[in-house]
Design a protein around this nucleic acid. Structure first.
Lengths: 149, 149
DNA sequence: TTTATTTAAGTTGTGCACAATTTGATTTTG
DNA sequence: CAAAATCAAATTGTGCACAACTTAAATAAA
């Protein structure tokens, strides 16, 4: 492919990823809005729902590592989730630099309302389970490669 | 896959797309910064560079259709590109509702500096040309399906 | 031990992305 | 033709995502 050709929009993987991510978000938004969540807030809740109780804690730092987000993004986002009473934020008494996030009872309860979202979104892709797994693993290796370069 | 399983971060296609798009942006940002562009501004320039001259025009509306962006995103973005003298914006005299965008001489010249960006980004993916084409076409069909639902 | 370095959150500022609305122009149609 | 509907941009407001910086705490080094 020559330079002029590769400068075209249609040839670019990045533009596809960018467009798909926007499209995904548009499908998620109305569904998540019913729960009072944005997509990024939903990602935080997914992490917290993995230990679905009001005692497990995770630091902002750890949350950032899981989601690949920094405190500049997470701090205000977590405040919004706290304002809605889905999470609580408490400074760690052992290490005062760290802030621990955990689910509130309301935040726990919200999980039930989110149970069928993945299935709903999967159906929108029109893919088979095999195709999904195949695409997922391709994207995983791309993620690994691009993180280390 | 049960509901609890599918609510996990690792099982989700969307999270992979979201993460990859952020990662892409992080690779593009430093490279594009040298040209004075953000990724979204670069996309606009890619469209304009397809007719690389200072006479071809495209309306904000058409630009929005190509990039799947609305005027709420494009209007301020185009103003920034205009402030940097990469594009000019002129209201269409035939139809005063429409605004035509075109490259300035400076905007045309900028293309030369962008020539090797696609190659550079491709090398970061670590993929072969075949793998890239294959992934691109998978994402294309996903885009088609998701647009129509 | 006190100085230096590192670390975790938070803050500030910029630029999207998009919903909702406004403004003004063009079409439609009654 | 005039009123109604449609259309293209722009504006306003919200919430990321991230760079750059600040603050306060913990750890390491001199």
């Amino acid at each position: 492919m020559n330079n002029d050709e590769s400068l075209k929009l249609e040839s670019q993987l990045c533009f596809r990823l960018y467009s798909l991510t926007k499209l995904m978000n548009r499908h998620y938004s109305p569904v998540l809005k019913k729960l009072g969540l944005t997509y990024s807030q939903y990602l935080v809740m997914l992490v917290l729902w993995e230990n679905n109780n009001t005692t497990s804690v995770i630091s902002v730092k750890q949350l950032g590592e899981k989601l690949d987000l920094d405190s500049g993004t997470l701090s205000p986002l977590l405040k919004r989730l706290e304002k809605q009473a889905f999470v609580s934020r408490v400074r760690n008494s052992e290490d005062e630099r760290s802030v621990e996030v955990k689910l509130t009872t309301l935040g726990c309860q919200l999980k039930a309302q989110a149970q069928n979202i993945p299935q709903e979104m999967f159906s929108i892709t029109g893919m088979s389970v095999d195709e999904l797994h195949n695409l997922n693993s391709q994207l995983d290796s791309l993620l690994v490669t691009m993180k280390t370069k």
